[in-house]
Amino acid sequence: MSIHQDANDTTDLDGRTQPSPVRIDGIPVGGGAPAYVIGEIGLNHNGDVELAKRLIDVAADAGAQAVKFQKRTPEISTPAHMRDVPRQTPWGEMSYLEYRYRVEFDREQYIEIGDHATLRGLSWFASPWDEPSVDFLEDLGVSAHKVASASVTDSGLLTRLAATGKPIILSTGMSTLEQIDRAVEILRGSPLVILHATSTYPLPAEEANLRMIDSLAARYPGVPIGYSGHETGLQISLAAVALGATMVERHITLDRAMWGSDHAASLEPHGFSNLVRDIRVIETAMGDGVKRIFPGELAPLAKLRRVDA
């Protein structure tokens, strides 16, 4: 299957198609640009605006380009079989549906955290889990939309997202290639970034399957391919960058021991800062693939080489 962002694709030294850049608030993703790093706040704010702001600060201080949240209309997006399931929370026992309402930000709260992200120099957007949530986010003027892995097969949601004309970031966890193909077809014409992901929390190394980055790049030439990670350390995300990931998304938290389903698979501030630092080191170290004698080699060359060519 082939989908192209525009007519300006380039090729690398191996003749492979390089992804045309998608721009989010003017920052390119793909096309040889540095990896675009997203601090995934998700629900790790636990419904607390001040905690959300502190997590935005973590992402900004680390040098990320964006933060991402999740937006739901709980009555629509909560599966029927889950609504009445009891949930133990810091606010006492409640049904799963009540919990979903408890941690959901309203319009004024999103304006407050969105303004904070903007003031810190970050783009912000969210994963809408239902069609009214797309309209909610559009009204707030988000710069992009993220499709959660759970929503890959939601054709109504994808159609509504495609109609926005905004950049779309498509996660591919818990999905078959055929399901991804159908999602990509619906999103055809949208500026698109595809993220390889495995939706196991936390992610064990044996399920990371990082070679899918190359497989997705071959299947969707011209589309930037990134990585959304749910592992506990840095190694797998860093390897993804070395394998060509143009975007990296990781959950962030103030403390992995906090209450909530995603905290254990998140990076604490120091870890997230190290991730961004090490991504930039790897990008510098990748070079251009052209063999040359570097300036630092000249002294050892003069000292050690006995026979000239």
Rank of each mutant, 00 (worst) to 15 (best):
S2E: 14
G15H: 11
R16S: 07
R16N: 09
T17H: 08
P19A: 14
P21V: 07
I27D: 06
P28C: 12
V29K: 03
G42L: 03
H45W: 02
D48E: 15
L55M: 07
I56W: 08
A59K: 06
A60T: 15
R72S: 13
P74C: 06
I76W: 04
M82I: 00
R83Q: 14
D84N: 12
R87W: 11
R87C: 12
M94A: 09
S95E: 05
S95N: 05
S95I: 08
Y101E: 15
R102Y: 08
V103Q: 15
V103G: 03
F105Y: 10
R107M: 13
E108Q: 15
Y110Q: 04
R120E: 04
P128E: 03
V134I: 12
D135G: 09
S143R: 15
T153G: 01
S155G: 05
L157T: 07
R160D: 02
A162V: 10
K166A: 10
K166L: 12
P167V: 02
L170M: 07
T176A: 09
Q179Y: 00
A183Y: 07
E185Y: 01
A205E: 11
I213G: 03
I213S: 01
A218K: 08
P221M: 10
P221H: 13
S228Q: 02
L238S: 01
A240M: 08
T246Y: 01
H251E: 05
D255T: 02
A257T: 12
D262Y: 12
A264V: 14
H270Q: 12
N274P: 00
N274R: 10
R277S: 08
R277G: 07
G287R: 11
G289I: 05
V290Q: 15
P295E: 11
G296S: 10
E297M: 07
L304E: 13
R306N: 00
A309C: 04
